[in-house]
Simulated scan of single mutants.
Amino acid sequence: MLENNSCPFTFVKRGFFYFTRRVPSDLRRHYTSKKISFSLRTRSKVVARSRALRAAQQLDEHWYHLRIQDVDVPGKHLLRMGLGRQADNAHIASDGGAASTVTLTEAVAIYLRLKGLGRPATFHRAAERSCGYVIDACGDKGLTEYTKTDANAFRDALLARGLTGSSITRIFGTVRSVTNFAASETGISLNNPFTGVYYDRKAGVEDRQPLPIGGPVMATC
């Protein structure tokens, strides 16, 4: 049952090809075995090679996302959160009652699962991106764990990005909508720290000069 070099990530057993891949050592805590192995359900080397390479690519993508969860990297806010399965149970505590809190990531999932139905992709991206900025600046905390200090640090991080006052207002509005909605849905009492944060609303917004009255008229041919 040696790995088939001409057909990567496979070995042959009783005439059938099997996929095999060792779990990276830094990710083994996520698995119950050090190796992933399953039948590719084919005797054809061509078919087995295609299926094995596709499975390997899917694993590489999955392992990337497992690693990214544990690493604070630039641009982490741009990753799609994709945690709808967590949202299904985020508002239920282990004893069946209301949860004491949910994380911001879970709050986004709740918000999009319930309010995102039929909404355009821009609606989903705005919620994920705006709350992703919070996670980048302050971490993925429970909703009741965020403080005014966190909200001010979030504001400073947005200002450091060179965003205009109107953009910051829009982002703060989205964060408040997500957190307030998730808190209401899960029965959490929340004194939202992202309310009443000071910044210059007009920063970076240029006033448009009015067109001159009675100015020269360009001739046309």
Rank of each mutant, 00 (worst) to 15 (best):
I36F: 13
I36D: 15
S37P: 08
S37Y: 12
F38Y: 14
F38C: 10
F38T: 07
S39F: 07
S39G: 01
S39I: 06
L40I: 11
L40E: 04
L40N: 03
L40M: 05
R41M: 04
R41V: 03
R41H: 12
T42F: 02
T42V: 14
T42G: 09
T42W: 05
T42S: 14
R43P: 09
R43G: 05
R43K: 15
S44Q: 14
S44N: 09
S44Y: 06
K45L: 00
K45P: 00
K45T: 05
K45Y: 01
K45V: 03
V46F: 05
V46G: 07
V47C: 02
V47A: 04
V47F: 00
V47H: 01
A48L: 04
A48W: 01
A48Y: 00
A48N: 03
R49W: 01
R49E: 14
R49T: 08
R49Y: 01
R49C: 04
S50V: 10
R51M: 04
R51P: 03
A52T: 02
A52Q: 03
A52R: 03
L53E: 08
L53G: 01
R54C: 00
R54K: 04
A55G: 03
A56W: 10
A56Q: 06
A56N: 11
Q58Y: 00
L59M: 09
L59K: 12
L59Y: 06
D60H: 13
D60Y: 10
D60P: 06
E61M: 05
E61Y: 07
E61A: 01
H62L: 05
H62A: 12
H62M: 07
W63E: 15
W63G: 13
W63F: 12
W63N: 05
W63I: 06
Y64Q: 12
H65R: 13
H65T: 09
H65W: 02
L66I: 09
L66M: 14
L66H: 11
L66C: 13
R67M: 07
R67A: 13
R67T: 11
R67S: 13
I68R: 07
I68G: 01
I68N: 07
Q69H: 08
Q69S: 10
Q69W: 03
D70T: 10
D70A: 11
V71Q: 13
V71H: 09
V71S: 10
V71G: 07
D72M: 06
D72Y: 08
D72W: 08
V73S: 11
V73N: 08
P74F: 02
P74W: 02
P74L: 02
G75C: 03
G75I: 01
G75P: 08
G75Q: 08
K76E: 00
K76D: 00
K76R: 12
K76Q: 09
H77N: 15
H77P: 11
H77D: 13
H77K: 15
H77G: 04
H77T: 07
L78W: 15
L78I: 13
L78A: 14
